[in-house]
Amino acid sequence: MRGIFSDGPRTALTAFYWAFLLYLLLPLTLMMAMSFKDASFVAFPIGNWTLDWYGKVMQDKQFLDACLYSVMIAAASMVAATTLGTWIAMLIVAEGIRGRMIIFALACLPAVVPGMISAISLRIFISTIDMPTGTAAIILGHTVHAVPFVVVMALTRLRSMPGNLVDAARDLGADNVVAFFRVTLPYLGPALLGGMIFCVLLSIDDFVRTFFLGGYRPTLPMLIFAKVQGGMSPEINAMATIVLVVTAAVGLYAEYMTRRARTR
């Protein structure tokens, strides 16, 4: 096969790719490096290195509480969003549905509306139904945010599913519910697992919805935001580094799972 470009542009493109990768990684690397600085003033160059900030963060009750709170919210909204998203996807692929496109567009709406506006409209919405701001409101907001992604992921997988699998199950005496749980759901499995992890990451990353819907108990992004506005300290870097490493590990695992699902 002949190259698309002659060697000159090819080398230039390769160089550009690595430069871009450097651009993506450099700020995060600097951020992480700063967490090891043995001084409380956030500035380069880093003279002496220390792990003290990590010790401090690990004993920081506020941080640990925020972690717990974030994980709890993420888990709750993940369960809700996965259930609803799969259900909506099943509705969209069902036989004889009219207005498929409208349902699909409606399901994707929260992904198109800018985050800020979504947050405000939810803030208004919960006040019209007399729901207080706080944990439940945040979970609701994160669920609305995540549902479109689950719908799209489930739909992609459902379309590749041979229709006769469910027919066979029904011929063997399964009713629709049983056929869903024994045939469709296992087939969706890997895609859903990827979707679920994505929901968790969306929820843990979310700032703007939590900002408008949350109460006084901060989630991780809220805590980091408050600390950054309060003044720089390598302690924030240590916090951010811990969160970054954990979420990146989870994200890599999700990527691995969905990749395996696709090739299977």
């Binding site: 871009f20 990768l21 700063m34 990353d205 951010a240």
Partner: peptide, 22 residues
Amino acid sequence: LLLLLVPFWAGELIRTFSVIML
């Protein structure tokens, strides 16, 4: 592709914060 995706598992806020460092 995966190499390019790694930084995006850091949240919006952490990436913004890291730009301050730069």
